[in-house]
Nucleic acid binder design. Structure first.
Lengths: 229, 229
DNA sequence: ACCTGAACACCGTTCAAGT
DNA sequence: ACCTGAACACCGTTCAAGT
C-alpha cells in the first residue's frame, strides 16, 4: 500500500499528464453580475474540488502544487494567487470534508446518532489518504466545525456535563480520525490480526460510547443527590 | 507553535551548524575484536540517537538527512550507507521509543497499570513532535512492540476475550497516540476550550477503560451463563 | 486583478570514485 | 566495507513581467 520511494520506483511521476490546456474547455458564458462565472477563472471552490480529486487518487503526499495547477490548466503561480500555502489548501479541504459528514444523522437514541455520525466521518475521511493524518495534527485550526456543533447538540440534550462532553469529543475525534488514517486503511495490518477491521472499529466505538454513558450516568446521579436536601 | 513556511521566516535553516568536523573528536581506541568500537565509525544506534535529538528539537519535519549527517560529522552518503531511507530511520526511532515506555509499570489493578502505561507513552511520544503522527500511519509496520506485549499480558490476565482486547488496544493506541500528536501538544487549542489538557486526556482515558471494563464484564457473565447447565 | 515563466532554496536518494 | 563529492529529480514558494 505504502510507496517507499526507492529503487523499485524508477519514476514517481505518472506516465505524463495531458499538456496544460489553455483553460478548461467550457462554453464561454455571459459574465455574471458578480463577475464570477462558474468555471471562468480560478475559484477557491474549484481548487478545493481539484485538490480533493488528487488526494483521493494519490493521497496528500501525492498532491503537489504543480500537479494541482496542471490539472486546473493554469501555471503554478496562478494557484498561489488564490491559495497562500499548501497548508492552507489542506485546511480548506478538511473543512470541506467535515461539512459533508453531518448532513444526515441517522438513528433515534443519542448513542445511535453519535455512532452513525462517527462511522460516516471515518468513511469519508478514509477515502482521502493522508487527510486524517493532517486533520489530527491541526485540530486546533479546524474547529469549530459543523460536525463539532452537531455532536455537541446531541450530547448536551441528553445531559452531558461540559467536562464529560469535552472528554468524549476529544476521545471520539482521535479514535475515529486515527483509525481512518492508520488502521482502517491498512486492511492487512497485523496489529489487529484476526479479522474484519470495520467490525473492530465498531467494537472500539461501542466501547468508548459505553464508557461515556456510564460516566455520564454516574455524574447525573451525583448531581441529583446533591440537589436533594 | 506551528511554523508556516511563509514570509515570516526568511530562512528556515538555523544560523549555521558547525562545519562538518573530520569526525567526532574521541580518543582513538584499540579496535575491538568485533570490529565495532563504541563511537568509532557510524552505527545504527548512534544514528538513531542523533535523530532523536534532532526530532526533539525541531520535529520530524525538521529532521533532514543532511542535518543528521552534519550532526554526525559525516557526509550525506555515509548515513545512507547505514540506513536505506528516512522512512526506515523513523521506524527505528519509533521502535526505540516504544521500548522505553513499558520499562516500568506502576499501579496494582489492571486498569491502574494500563493507565500508567498509556500516560507514560503519551509523555514520551509527546516529546518528539511529529512522531505520533508518523506512528499513527505506520502502526502495521511497528508491531509487535514490547509495549504491545505488555498490554496484552495485562488484559489476558483479567479475562479479556481476544475480541474485546483487540478493540481496546486499537482504541487506546489511536486515542493516546493521536492525543500526543495533535491535542496534547497544542495546549492552547480551542477545541477543548476550557482547561487543563492533561486532565482532559485522563478523563478520556478513564472513559475508554470504563467502557472496556463494562463490556468485559458483560462478556464474562454471558460465558458463565452459557457454561452453567 | 489575474496569470505566466522562471527562478530560489531547499528536499530525499543515488552513485562513481576514493581509502 | 565505509565514506566523499557531486549530481538527479523533485518539492514549496516567490516574483518580475505581461494582459
Amino acid at each position: 500500500m505504502r510507496v517507499v520511494p526507492s529503487l523499485t520506483t524508477p519514476s514517481k511521476r505518472a506516465p505524463r499528464r495531458e499538456p496544460p490546456s489553455p483553460k478548461k474547455a467550457r462554453a464561454p458564458e455571459i459574465p455574471a453580475s458578480n463577475g464570477q462565472v462558474d468555471g471562468a477563472g480560478l475559484s477557491e471552490a474549484e481548487i478545493v474540488r481539484a485538490a480533493r480529486e488528487i488526494i483521493a487518487e494519490v493521497g496528500v503526499q501525492g498532491l503537489t502544487m504543480r500537479r494541482l495547477s496542471n490539472d486546473l490548466g493554469v501555471a503554478l503561480g496562478a494557484t498561489y494567487h488564490h491559495i497562500a500555502t499548501k497548508h492552507d489548501l489542506l485546511l480548506l479541504v478538511g473543512r470541506n470534508l467535515y461539512s459533508e459528514v453531518s448532513v444526515f444523522v441517522e438513528g433515534g437514541t443519542w448513542d445511535a446518532k453519535l455512532k452513525s455520525l462517527m462511522m460516516n466521518q471515518s468513511a469519508i475521511i478514509g477515502r482521502y489518504p493522508g487527510m486524517g493524518n493532517f486533520l489530527m495534527t491541526h485540530v486546533d485550526e479546524l474547529v469549530p466545525s459543523d460536525l463539532n456543533k452537531t455532536v455537541r447538540e446531541i450530547l448536551v440534550e441528553v445531559g452531558f456535563s461540559e467536562r464529560e462532553m469535552t472528554a468524549l469529543m476529544g476521545a471520539l475525534f482521535f479514535y475515529v480520525t486515527g483509525m481512518s488514517a492508520g488502521g482502517l486503511a491498512a486492511a492487512t495490518a497485523k496489529v489487529f490480526r484476526g479479522r474484519n477491521m470495520l467490525a473492530l472499529f465498531e467494537d472500539g466505538l461501542d466501547m468508548l460510547i459505553t464508557g461515556a454513558r456510564v460516566r455520564m450516568e454516574v455524574d447525573r446521579k451525583a448531581k441529583r443527590r446533591a440537589a436533594r436536601p
